[in-house]
Write a protein that binds this DNA or RNA. Structure first.
Lengths: 183, 183
DNA sequence: TTAACTGTACCGTCTGGACGGTACAGTTAA
DNA sequence: TTAACTGTACCGTCCAGACGGTACAGTTAA
């Protein structure tokens, strides 16, 4: 029988959200412990109370990624429009919780964070399997790469946000292309 | 006529190559002045003799990108197989000088280096124009995104290098997809 | 019932190291 | 002779992480 939490750990989620936001907006380099603590409205000491080091923050962020991704894979498999069309539409930046962790994780993979790279590779495989079931094994990769290209462009063109409008217009062209590839 | 160099500036190119290599292999964060100088086999003083600061190194790297890219655009426009197929085939990592600067530049864009992002956006536009001339305006973006997705995957899956073999096998599937989209 | 105690949730400061950059004196080779 | 270096010493800043302390909610035993 433990002494029950005295107060709710409000700072914990705030820190994680701040870490995610900084990764998205400015990349790994800008996501220093100080910057994260400041954005979260928490002292640096408070941050380190919850996460003994930066690696621990990353680990919990990757857990969040796994959780949200599992949900999305279910939705993708069950999508009435088909997994491929669902995938393309969801590849455009929409500021959903999944989009946010995914981009944050990409920022970590970019700087060669090994564990993150491993997880991301697993994600790609999961997507590919569902795409293959929808459009066939030979056209699965073309579709996968189209979606990835969408993400890639959104991220390069000054982080996600600005370019949303421009890219959103491309989605229909991509969905049309996917229909043409199907079979 | 120029002012009679006593010795050839061998260190200059070596430094630039080392900077490029570190960006590719480990990202911007690892490409410190000390690390670049060490890999180039040059003293830190020697590095700073040629490049007064890091920004100057980046500027010269972007010049290299522009030069190699201009050559590649010519080849792409003149490709007998068509610009689109050429683009897809050249989107896979092949360790060419252009591939190297391009990935290095991507690393800089990732960490929100403004000038690099501007240049990369220009690159995308150039490619898009040639693709549109080949496969039509509506299918240009799907093709562009496929190529970008190829790059994206090569870079995420543990930096460029390892995954070359796996991705090379995908190229034919993509080229086939492009043929299906054409018209 | 309440004083003593326990564990959680923080805050603020400090330290050691890395990094970008400066300065400058000496060395080498065309 | 002069450009192209090497090497070292140094500065200011920033960062990850350690540390000591505080506030307080819940638990327990007299």
């Amino acid at each position: 029988m433990m002494g029950a939490m005295a107060r709710k750990p409000v700072a914990r989620e705030a820190v994680l959200d701040a870490f995610e936001s900084l990764l998205i907006a400015e990349g790994e380099r800008a996501a220093t412990l100080d910057a994260v603590a400041r954005l979260a409205g928490v002292s640096k000491g408070g941050l380190l109370y919850h996460f003994p080091n930066k690696e621990a923050m990353i680990a919990v962020l990757l857990e969040r990624l796994d959780r949200l991704l599992a949900e999305d894979l279910d939705a993708m498999a069950a999508a009435p429009e088909g997994a491929a069309a669902y995938f393309i539409r969801s590849s455009v930046w929409a500021d959903t919780p999944l989009d946010r962790v995914f981009v944050a994780a990409t920022r970590l993979a970019e700087v060669a964070h090994a564990e993150t790279q491993r997880r991301m590779a697993g994600v790609q495989e999961s997507w590919l399997a569902l795409l293959a079931a929808d459009v066939g094994p030979t056209m699965a990769k073309p579709v996968l790469y189209m979606g990835d290209g969408l993400y890639f462009n959104a991220m390069l063109a000054r982080g996600p946000g600005e370019t949303t409008v421009g890219l959103a217009g491309d989605v229909e062209a991509l969905v049309a292309a996917v229909e043409r590839l199907r079979g």
